[in-house]
């Protein structure tokens, strides 16, 4: 029946493309989570009145974040291709999409991290200082745990944006469902492929949203 409804859909292709999309999203979410938290923490602690107030570092990080957030993703992939070639050794395939995905999403997530950290109760930070905690202790034992639910909902939103980015990356040859929909579906005008790809992308988005919601809820003891 599946074959009658969607005559041009190759199950093997579909499985392969889905795996690639999940792979690209998964790795880039992990990379973005780490890199974004670093950016967000830097913004938070070096800001005026922060734990490590430092105007120079703040300006550099804030500029980086603002510039990279302003570049449309499709242009960012092209712009980063020499860098990608240098790091990954190729500009095609799922791995080649990763640098652009992480660099594209981290500034976006970094701002969310900064907002999440600003929401941490000032009194709790003060209490930790009053107990004689080092700045690193405050970061790892107060700031990050106390903002974790917000950090998780932030990365969930970012993960969903990243699914969209992988589809765009697919158009220039990174593989995944975007690639499949564009090359096999759009270019050959086998529209059933586009439809099935869409459904799969939506399912992946739902999956990420669900994981994010459950985790965030579980961590929130407020």
């Amino acid at each position: 029946m599946l074959h009658n409804l969607f005559p041009n859909v190759q199950v093997a292709d579909l499985v392969e493309a889905t795996k690639e999309t999940i792979y690209m999203t998964g790795i880039s979410v992990i990379g973005t989570f780490i890199f974004g938290i670093v950016l967000g923490l830097l913004l938070f602690v070096t800001a005026k009145g922060g734990l490590w107030e430092n105007r120079a570092i703040y300006v550099v990080v804030a500029s980086f974040v603002n510039v990279f957030r302003a570049i449309p993703f499709i242009i960012l992939i092209l712009l980063l291709s020499p860098f990608t070639d240098f790091i990954v050794g190729t500009v095609r395939g799922p791995n080649a999409a990763l640098p652009a995905l992480i660099i594209g999403a981290s500034p976006f997530y970094g701002r969310m991290v900064e907002i999440a950290l600003k929401e941490v109760d000032k009194g709790v930070i003060e209490a930790a200082k009053g107990m004689g905690a080092k700045t690193s202790t405050i970061i790892f034992k107060v700031l990050l745990p106390e903002s974790m639910p917000a950090l998780i909902s932030g990365i969930t939103v970012t993960a969903i944006a990243l699914v969209g980015y992988t589809a765009m990356a697919g158009v220039i040859g990174a593989g995944g469902l975007g690639d499949l929909a564009y090359l096999k579906g759009f270019q050959r005008w086998d529209f059933d492929v586009v439809l099935v790809s869409t459904v799969l992308v939506v399912l992946i988005v739902f999956l990420f949203q669900m994981i994010g919601d459950i985790t965030s809820k579980k961590l929130d003891k407020r």
Binding site: E126, A127, V142, E146, L219, K221
Partner: peptide, 12 residues
């Protein structure tokens, strides 16, 4: 030090 608003960590 003890604080007016307790300042305990909700995550612990």
């Amino acid at each position: 030090m003890v604080y007016q608003h307790f300042n305990v960590l909700w995550s612990r």
